[in-house]
């Protein structure tokens, strides 16, 4: 047996064990930790989709809160007026996020760099203003309240997700699916083309790649992820609110991507964990948590190039290199 194969098997066993630990977490810890786990999973889904755009395609959007809100309100309205069944709601949330991203993206991908960022910011805030002002439909600043978490019924099968643990497992499963899809996308010719566009859009254009269409596709996919995360949050918190579309919320996936590592699949997920856990810990020690939290984020982002995942990988590489040398 080659050493590489051995370590691969070991890594696989370890990752299975870790996955089992993740699933067992709600059994071992308190309700609040489980609840935070769901928040981490939702932010991770949001961030993972977002990073397909930022890390992979090299586009910095400040408008993804808008797509998150589109998904949230789609699920909320569906649940309050059509059916409380979560599956059509989540499907609608995903579709709403993608559709909003398609419309916004159609205009935005024409611009590049800072112009692109500013346009997405403007569209995001436009969605915010629409949600805030369409009081009859969205409930204005009070938001949509009282969305209930109905069981997922599939024929004779009935999955009750009202409890924290069940909903945690659902969120983790959806996160796993999101990560798997992002992984496949990154490895596909499509994903590699996106990376090519990020490195040199002019060269990609000359190579015959329809750059705008590729960018739009990445934009729509990340919008769909945002919509799904938004829909899930409505199920978690039982309300949708306009601040979901605000640019301050759009900044969260950027932060977690930077925190975890832009150039890795797991970066945003790790970043989300660090983001939620750090805030929780800091808030326990000081009332001025915003200041302390900001400083900690700054140190991590400036101190670890390539984010947490990048730093850990670099460390492991250095150790491996050190061991390989006699």
């Amino acid at each position: 047996m080659s050493p590489a194969a051995g370590s691969r098997r070991g890594a696989r066993a370890l990752s299975w064990a870790a996955a089992a630990a993740l699933v067992a977490l709600p059994l071992l810890s308190g309700k609040f930790a489980t609840y935070l786990g769901v928040r981490v999973a939702l932010l991770a889904i949001f961030g993972t989709g977002y990073n397909l755009l930022l890390g992979r395609t090299g586009l910095l959007s400040f408008g993804h809160g808008g797509f998150y809100a589109a998904g949230a309100y789609a699920l909320g309205l569906c649940s309050l007026h059509l059916t409380a069944h979560p599956l059509p709601g989540l499907a609608l949330a995903l579709a709403a996020g993608a559709a909003a991203a398609l419309v916004v993206g159609f205009f935005c991908i024409r611009a590049s760099e800072v112009y692109f960022s500013m346009l997405t910011l403007a569209f995001g805030m436009l969605i915010f203003a629409v949600v805030w002002n369409a009081r009859e439909i969205t409930g204005g600043d009070d938001g949509l309240v009282g969305v209930m978490r109905a069981p997922i019924a599939l024929g004779p099968l009935r999955l009750d997700i009202a409890g924290e643990r069940a909903f945690y497992l659902l969120a983790v499963a959806l996160l796993a699916g999101s990560l798997w899809l992002a992984h496949r996308l990154r490895r596909s010719p499509f994903g590699l083309t996106l990376a090519g566009i990020r490195e040199n859009p002019v060269r990609a254009e000359f190579a015959g790649v329809p750059v705008r269409r590729y960018r739009l596709a990445a934009f729509v996919i990340s919008g769909a992820y945002a919509g799904l995360a938004g829909g899930l949050e409505v199920l978690l918190e039982s309300n949708a609110r306009p601040t979901m579309a605000h640019w301050t919320h759009s900044a969260e996936p950027i932060l977690v991507s930077l925190l975890g590592g832009l150039h890795s699949l797991l970066g945003p997920a790790v970043g989300s964990l660090a983001f939620v856990a750090l805030r929780e810990v800091v808030q326990r020690f000081t009332e001025n948590w915003m200041l302390a939290f900001g400083v900690v984020l700054l140190v991590i982002i400036l101190g670890f190039r390539g984010g947490i995942v990048g730093a850990v990988e670099a460390g492991l590489r250095a150790r491996r290199a050190g061991r390989a040398a006699p």
């Binding site: 691969r8 890594a11 696989r12 370890l14 990752s15 870790a18 996955a19 630990a21 993740l22 977490l25 786990g37 981490v40 992984h183 890795s264 699949l265 797991l266 997920a269 790790v270 964990l273 995942v309 850990v312 990988e313 492991l316």
Partner: peptide, 13 residues
Amino acid sequence: VSRRRFLELAGKG
């Protein structure tokens, strides 16, 4: 990928 995944999972846990 596995190792990264492991780190994420173990870290989170």
